[in-house]
């Protein structure tokens, strides 16, 4: 579905992403983890088109989309959420989602109907008529998800949709994400909440200092000494073991 080949992104002298390659298999949930400042969000901007790679390519369904603008990629079927939520603050929740739905539905009534269905699905049903700016953090994260989903994507890029949520909110949203995958949407997610990564992802890539340093099933990756050294640090390995026992 998605393939990133040796992507590099430089900002002046700073190399944010360095020769990174990854694949997101169709119908699977792939995770992208790594310490803060590793370049995960930059890699996402290369995939979604907000930045263009300095070197390397981004392939989607076998086609080179490295130079496409973000809206063109959205039309091809790539949707993203923002780590720092970006609601249309002056609009209602329903109208927010409808902007996404309009991508595939020219008629307003169709777009509104579609938006309402998507809103219900991610659990925003009671909030649809409220102003987007009145939502809680968890509500805004759901709104990000709903808007992206309303574009009927083939590939969904989730940038820390769980960050800032409390454990019960996380528990509520994990089945939603899994259900989206079950309908055939491929998902690539940046996530810090390890519980979710372990639960959801079939394949995980670890990015550190702009490079992919490990890949594989989540359990394997977490045991990888390279990862423990670069990302988790000494002592964290044991903490992780404990978490696994509790999970």
């Amino acid at each position: 579905m998605l393939e990133v080949q040796n992507a590099t992104k430089r900002f002046g002298g700073l190399v944010a992403v360095n020769q990174a390659s990854l694949k997101a298999a169709a119908g699977a949930i792939t995770g992208l983890i790594g310490p803060n400042g590793a370049g995960k969000t930059t890699l996402f901007t290369l995939i979604s088109g907000f930045e263009k790679p300095s070197e390397g390519r981004v392939l989607f369904e076998g086609q080179d989309i490295s130079r496409d603008e973000p809206h063109v990629r959205a039309r091809r079927g790539i949707a993203r959420t923002f780590q720092i939520v970006q609601p249309f603050a002056g609009l209602s929740v329903l109208e927010n989602i409808a902007v996404g739905a309009h991508l595939r539905h020219a008629k307003r009534s169709d777009a509104m109907a579609r938006a309402e269905r998507v809103g219900q699905r991610v659990g925003l049903g009671p909030e649809l008529e409220k102003s987007a700016s009145s939502l809680t953090v968890a509500g805004r994260k759901r709104l990000e998800l709903a808007r992206a989903l309303a574009t009927e994507p083939k590939l969904l890029l989730l940038d820390e949709v769980l960050a800032g949520l409390n454990p019960s909110e996380i528990r509520d949203i994990i089945p939603v994400i899994r259900a989206i995958r079950d309908e055939g949407v491929t998902i690539l997610m940046i996530e810090h909440v390890m519980q979710a990564v372990m639960n959801l992802c079939e394949q995980v890539y670890v990015l550190a200092q702009g490079r992919i340093i490990a890949e594989g099933p989540p359990a394997d990756v977490c045991d990888d000494p390279k990862v423990i050294e670069a990302y988790l640090g000494a002592g964290a390995a044991e903490r992780l073991k404990r978490e696994k026992i509790h999970a």
């Binding site: 979604s48 907000f50 603008e69 973000p70 809206h71 959205a74 039309r75 949707a79 993203r80 923002f82 970006q86 609601p87 249309f88 902007v99 996404g100 991508l103 808007r147 992206a148 309303a150 574009t151």
Partner: peptide, 9 residues
């Protein structure tokens, strides 16, 4: 930015 991400030219 959000508009772009949702496919708005």
């Amino acid at each position: 930015a959000a508009a772009k991400a949702l496919g708005v030219d």
